[in-house]
């Protein structure tokens, strides 16, 4: 039981750090937003491994859905109104 949780936790932590790195290093705004969504996706799996299903559920619904939407929507409006 412990090795399985530890293996998954290791993968998920590495994934979260890589995604954060991509989000900060990339030149494209859309990729940065996707990276942030991926960070919260991995964090949500980590929450389940850390025995916090309530928190994981909130993070899954808010982090990868609603937050991503807010960013992309504002970016869509800015693109339409002639931003760079």
């Amino acid at each position: 039981m412990i090795p399985l949780s530890f293996l998954l936790a290791l993968l998920v932590c590495a994934g979260a750090l890589i995604a954060a790195g991509v989000a900060l290093a990339t030149a494209s705004r859309a990729t940065a937003v996707l990276g942030a969504g991926l960070v919260s996706l991995f964090a949500s799996v980590l929450f389940v491994i850390l025995a916090a299903p309530d928190v994981a559920m909130t993070e899954a619904a808010i982090g990868s859905g609603l937050t991503t939407f807010l960013f992309f929507f504002v970016m869509g409006r800015i693109r339409r109104e002639g931003g760079k």
């Binding site: 994981a56 559920m57 909130t58 859905g65 609603l66």
Partner: peptide, 25 residues
Amino acid sequence: YVIANGHLSPGGGFQGGAVLASGVL
């Protein structure tokens, strides 16, 4: 379901509200 079972399984008002808002989205 998430709202109504908030006291039995993971969930509750905040999670259920987020799910409902996802539907609006």
